[in-house]
Amino acid sequence: MAETSDNRKNNDTSVMIFKGKRLIVNLTPMIGLIGLIIICSLIVPKLFMSLSNWSNILRQVTILGFAALGMTIVILTGNIDLSVIGNVSMTTCLAAILLQHNWNLIPTFAIVILAGAFIGLINGLIISFWKIESFVVTMGMQVICFGLAQYISGGRTIIIQNLNPFMIELASYRIANIIPGMFVILIIFYIILWIFTRNTKLGRYIYALGGNEEVCYISGVNVTFVRTTAYIISGIFAAIAGIFTFSRSLCGDPTAGSSLGMYVIAAVVIGGTKMSGGRGNVLFTIIGIFVIGIINNMLNLIGFKYYAQQIIQGIIIISAVIAGSQKRR
């Protein structure tokens, strides 16, 4: 309080500095990623830069990539979706149980994606109607989803006989034996959503909602609709991540989603999307998933113990976010 006028002065100068450095700030995630790659290739040059290792990295980041794509949309609206990892578990198990009952692929996919979307719908409606913090609502929903996953699977990993060969190929097919097919699908989705956020009315409302909800409401925007749509998109991509999780492990594991943990949000934030909403870029989340994928890959290559890996991951994630943030004061 005492320094109101001083603060104002400081803000003005920081705004001016920010203006000049804006391009640099926007490019920080990219520069960080390139730096990370250079460091890694210096430490273990042969192993890290081999084609098979990169092919492996691409495969490992894909599922995280789908979950983080939906999360980016929700974070752009200024909300958060903690239910994603539960949703992945639930949809994996749902896909497994339906295939175990010999459902065809198309109806299976349809039901799984609808189920994922339904979770998003409920999230969006509860947050909008009761005006509750999205953090709390989606945290509850995460627990519900993990519970549903256990219920669907009967508490066990679902194993399937005579699985449709397409499901086996889905996650393991590689173009020219190098580029995983599912990574290509991921990139296509990123581009579609990037165009959606940039060039459509709804996409613009998503940014605007994160920027200032009151202005949206006064300007006649149906705020509930926009927010709920963002959550539905998040739910759909959680379901897609669920389907790929199933295809990768070829079984329905009710705890599958928990391995994604906080990586989903970390990827979005490392990509430069602001947790407060309204600022960010869908494509940059790809950088985020690569940073996380490469760190994990690298720690495995070097052969750190599991606990050491976690500590180092945490440190690197925090450093990445600090590097990407503009200083507050």
């Binding site: 613009r204 940014y207 605007a208 920027g211 200032n212």
Partner: peptide
């Protein structure tokens, strides 16, 4: 607080309400 979305551009703010017509 109720007039502008500060993080967005001048242009986006200007056409914000009539977006449906565009």
């Amino acid at each position: 607080n109720t007039g502008l979305i500060l993080s967005l551009s001048v242009g986006i703010n200007i056409t914000f309400i009539i977006l449906s017509k565009l």
